[in-house]
Every structure is written in C-alpha cells, then in structure tokens.
Amino acid sequence: MADEEQKLTDVESPDQAQSWFYSETVKDHFFNPRNFLKADPKEGEYDGEGQVGSPACGDKMHVWIKVDPKGEKITEFKWRTFGCASAIAATSMLSEMVMEKGGMSLDKAQKLKPQDIIERLSGLPARKIHCSVLGDQALRAAVNDYYERQGKNDKITPKEQFFCPFKDQCNK
C-alpha cells in the first residue's frame, strides 16, 4: 500500500490546467482554517501524534489525534502546518474529513490517499499536489503512533519516505 502511494505521478488533480488560483474551497479553508491546535498540548492529552516534512523543504505538518478505543475511531484531530495555501487548506480539510460522521476509523485513516483530500478541495494546481500528499502521511504517522503507544505493533504501516522537492540541495 505504501508503495502505491509513493507513485506521485499517479496522483492527478481534477484541475489539470496550470492555473495559479485556487478553488473556492481551498481559499475558504486557507483563510478560515478549521480545527488547528491553538495551545500547546499537555502531556498525554492526545492519543497519537505525527509529523512530516520540514521548513527547509517548504512544508511541515504536525497532527494530533484522540481515539475512541472501542470503535477504533478518531474522535478529535488537531493540526499545525507550515507551508503554502494548499498545504494549510489540505490539513484543514483533512481535519473535517477525519472528524465528520462520528469520526474516521483508524483503518480508513491508514488507507486515506492524497487523491481523497484533493477531491474534497475541488482540485489543486498540479504543482501543489505534493502539499496534500503530506496530509495523509501525517495522519498515518499519528495512527501508527497511537498503535505503538497501545502496543499494537502489528497494525503499524511501514515507515514512509518523505518527498522533499529540494532534497538534492538542502541536505535535510
């Protein structure tokens, strides 16, 4: 599964034109971001957290989740993102996707694809696709962290390679 998601060329944007301006949905989430983490979390406040990217690479996401252990559902999703408009909008949208309909199951969260976020955003400019790729990676990292804390190592998905657009230059 992880391999399949590494093929960035397979990820296509509904916005095929090389347009610069973002969809209304992207703009709405960018200007009015939902569910971001305001105060730094207290020790043990969240059940799992995940980070992906770095400021040197242009994008960094940090997400925190609370899990209902009975239903194996994510009941709360908080985030912080450094990056361009699409990175911020993608994380904000992801937070809604995870928490709607009583919360996303951990299983579904692990299988979420960048394409799912892009579709909900009504598309992203082609060169901004990698920003949303980070969202699903950050979520998976948080779910894996939850499983690790629970000692359910068999449910952890393989560690993923982070795609830095500048990896040849910035050595991060």
Binding site: P55, G58, P165
Partner: peptide, 21 residues
C-alpha cells in the same frame, strides 16, 4: 513564483532554506 523553490537569491546570500521560504 511558478516554482516551489525558495528564492535562489536569498539562498545565495547564505540564508538557510527555512528562512528563504
């Protein structure tokens, strides 16, 4: 501005990538 790269100018003055972004 169509590219994702941080400014080659700011990077040339020795600033790290995270600041150039």
């Amino acid at each position: 501005s169509a590219s994702l790269d941080p400014s080659h100018v700011i990077v040339a003055t020795g600033r790290p990538f995270e600041e150039a972004h």
